[in-house]
Design a protein around this nucleic acid. Structure first.
Lengths: 170, 170
DNA sequence: AGAAACATGTAAAATGTTACATGATTGT
DNA sequence: ACAATCATGTAACATTTTACATGTTTCT
């Protein structure tokens, strides 16, 4: 259940794209990986310190840069089995006990979920426009893959919410 | 970030459907809520002890049963805002850095994800057959809602994986 | 009787977030 | 100069899982 390796993937991965400070690292993780990953300062700085001690990153002034050893380590980490976090969907937990919660409250939850899914789709569309423009970026095909995953999931959520609201009316 | 209320929802919710032992509670959470929720013994027993001290559950022999006060508490908890766990999708984290991981390894990950999504759909189909048969169950409409969410998400994942594998070939 | 499953509980270890302390840099 | 933002780091707190210890019940 150790997430350490996965935190290291996020940190080394971001640094493999360009050197940056720990502060910028967090901003990059929020803005770029935000739809499928998250890290807090409390994880980032200790991880950077460990990676520096191991020679996987080097501190140039305030910027952290990945070293050749770090790239090698990133390659190895990426090949390790995916660690699953236990599922925890608060919306479905509430809907499952919907008889106690009440039909109207359930419909409210579903309308909120629908609105959020549409908002996510808008955000992702904006990101897609940006990424589409980066013609030369060798990472682009992979960025687009993860983007498509977010879009597929948000579309599915929106459609499900719509049909669930309809189902509740009967 | 306190998940305590949500653990209590899972425990009180399960007991609102029928009384059972702590051991059976875990089995019920795994088998019935398993696609969107999880709890371990280390959470379940302390939560039961707390709920019993508060008068929300009563121990009859080894069975725990929800009390009227517990039903009231469950209603209140269900109405509280949903606590989000930070997103953490190890598959997308790896694909995002796919240039370093390599195209073939990415395709492998996607094929595995596709297979898993199909397996989930099969499991859910079996559950749907059971739930469909429970004609008299007043919880059924809500169970079906959460089931549909799982199906929509698994279908979306399967379709995305298929198109992502195709996209990688170019 | 012996094995397997049922049942309870807790301590240790890991994980992770939040809040705070502290200071440097930049823009107005 | 002053405010805002950038930047680093850590300590306290909360959360969770895992592993272990310990029995009971049921089945063969």
């Amino acid at each position: 259940m150790s997430r350490r390796p996965q935190t290291e993937i996020a940190v080394l991965g971001a640094l493999s794209i360009e050197p940056m400070t720990g502060y910028a690292l967090r901003a990059a993780i929020i803005s770029t990986l935000g739809h499928f990953w998250s890290e807090s300062f409390g994880q980032i700085y200790p991880t950077l310190a460990r990676l520096e001690a191991d020679g996987d990153v080097r501190k140039d002034g305030r910027q952290f840069a990945i070293t050749p050893a770090g790239r090698e380590r990133l390659r190895n980490l990426l090949g390790e089995p995916i660690e699953r976090t236990p599922p925890r969907n608060g919306l479905l937990l509430r809907l499952f006990f919907g008889r106690t919660l009440g039909r109207e409250a359930c419909a409210d939850l579903l309308r909120t979920a629908h609105t959020e899914a549409l908002a996510t789709l808008e955000t992702l569309a904006a990101i897609r426009a940006e990424v589409d423009a980066e013609d030369e970026n060798p990472d682009r095909p992979y960025f687009l893959l993860t983007l498509a995953a977010g879009e597929a999931s948000a579309r599915a959520q929106a459609e499900w919410a719509t049909s669930a609201i309809a189902a509740l009316r009967d």
